[in-house]
Design a protein around this nucleic acid. Sequence first.
DNA 1: GAAGTCTAAGAAATCGATTTCGTCAAGCAT
DNA 2: ATGCTTGACGAAATCGATTTCTTAGACTTC
Lengths: 334, 334
Amino acid sequence: MATIYEVAALAGVSPATVSRVFNGLTVSEEKQRLVRDAAARLAFTPNKTARRLRKQSSEIIALLIPDIENPFYTALARGVEDRAQESGFSVVLCNTDDNPAKELRYLQIAASEQMAGVILSPASDEVDLGAIVSLGRPVVAVDRTTPYPVDAVKIDNRAAGIAATTALVEAGYRRIACIAGPAGIEMTEDRFLGWRQVAAARGTGVHEGYLRHANFRVDGGHAAMRALLALDTPPDAVVTTNNLMAIGALQALAEAGISPEQFGVAAVGELPFVTMAPAAVASVVQVRLPARYLGRTAATMLLERIAGDTQPLRTVVLRAEVSPPPLPGKDPAL
Amino acid sequence: MATIYEVAALAGVSPATVSRVFNGLTVSEEKQRLVRDAAARLAFTPNKTARRLRKQSSEIIALLIPDIENPFYTALARGVEDRAQESGFSVVLCNTDDNPAKELRYLQIAASEQMAGVILSPASDEVDLGAIVSLGRPVVAVDRTTPYPVDAVKIDNRAAGIAATTALVEAGYRRIACIAGPAGIEMTEDRFLGWRQVAAARGTGVHEGYLRHANFRVDGGHAAMRALLALDTPPDAVVTTNNLMAIGALQALAEAGISPEQFGVAAVGELPFVTMAPAAVASVVQVRLPARYLGRTAATMLLERIAGDTQPLRTVVLRAEVSPPPLPGKDPAL
DNA sequence: GAAGTCTAAGAAATCGATTTCGTCAAGCAT
DNA sequence: ATGCTTGACGAAATCGATTTCTTAGACTTC
């Protein structure tokens, strides 16, 4: 790795001039050419570490997500990445596993690595964002919220819960259960409040035991669905507050020999990689979340802050829509 | 952010001593205590950027994968991440999108960021690893191979292709087609060679038009399957060389009203998030790849090199197995 | 033509750790 | 008691860029 000094020596100028050329500061045509030629000949790449030490900031943004194996978050990550790339930023993807300790560790790394900013989906309401916020690094919460004063991009979760449940009611279901995520996460609680509101008003009321808390993963949805089916008066439909728990629920139903055409299933979120028969797919209510756009929006907000935007805190709320499945074989891009 | 100088001043020692304390070098009990107290009081965290500039290396490894939205690669990433974490390393996940230009860009970043090493699944055989290799940074290729002299972890792809095709033959299918990935990637070519070998020997021979090249994604598999179904003499079964193309194929079949119980489908790779009826699921041949373990192994090899291991280049070949689906609702961890 | 204003570009300080080099004192052998 | 080793620890150099200062010319302006 050639350094700026070697380039300077070869070009017959001072290191300062080399730096100026690479940073677009005023340098005569003449010397610019000399420097560029020398740099090309030495295959010079500026040392980012040195640059960062001096500038006290980098062009890297950290993205902390709870579960990298959940297609919702990978789509979100794509959105962030694409937007960041457009501005010449790189994204470091960190998997927090819904574990506050891991999350904290990554936040510390982000700080001590002088990363330009952080986009995160907090593992819990108790994440300590105080340290990084007071350091002046911009932070944007995405999908999930946090009590700390940071920008946020979220879904209208209450409306999404209502939409999912309403679709089931309109399909004729009345005994509607809910498989919600862990307590203490506003995102899932809003969705289940939406369910409760509709289930109470237009279903048979909120039956004891029809609300199940589970982890956000497939196995959680599976276990919860089995428990629901084992009730004395089992429900005739279920709402799940995320995509993977719906997969688990569908698996449990399939095992029990029940098709989603008989038993209503609604998911807040999109089912990834469905291969069921078209009729079965169509019978599953999917409240599609604009995951990629969520990520893109968060990235845009973060980049604005990084660029020095000091407007008051913003929370962007996006609405999800109950929509038909995309044309099969087409990726619903962005 | 407190610096080492402030800690030194507060503790009444030199900065060198503070550094020594944090690096476990010989320092008297007495001063150790003073330094630790001062550091705690100032909430001191060593500046990684400065450290990296001086040490010319970091505790970050770059992981370059072609498609972050493919569950195979996210599982692989988990394997890498878990192993790296055990050794105190962080992982930076980079999505190359099967795009050599993006890949090159990330490799340059890895170099100029002084990352400790790189694990990658090359987007093409022409990736230029020369620069980073000659820089002395360890590199491990995973899943896909490269002509450059680097360690590698891969699947016995030929055997996987043979296993997938053989399972279809044994299920009674004879007109077996193949949906392969883009040409020029050894991984997918070996798999399709396995198919060709078995199809030629035990099927009806390799029919003109039964080999389709597609991108590695769902839409590619979908389009290829439609093309196969539109042939004058359509096949009665298909082998896909990865997981997502199988999803696409199954979707195309479902649209055509064909169940995988009638039309043989075999995938090299595991179908993510299946929700089909158990009988349908069981009829799909899945050659399960140890994705997580692949990642873990690659990480282990890389960490050994980082630690200074200089043994000759190694290529670890893992065998995939045609196996029954995991118990529903259970994540096939590691 | 003297004074004032720019502008290009070099010299040197700076970012915050690590590490080499010395120094000084204690411990040990002769 | 002298010389030698050993160990703790401070002073200062170092990593490679960026960013003041400065300075020397070139160019205005009255």
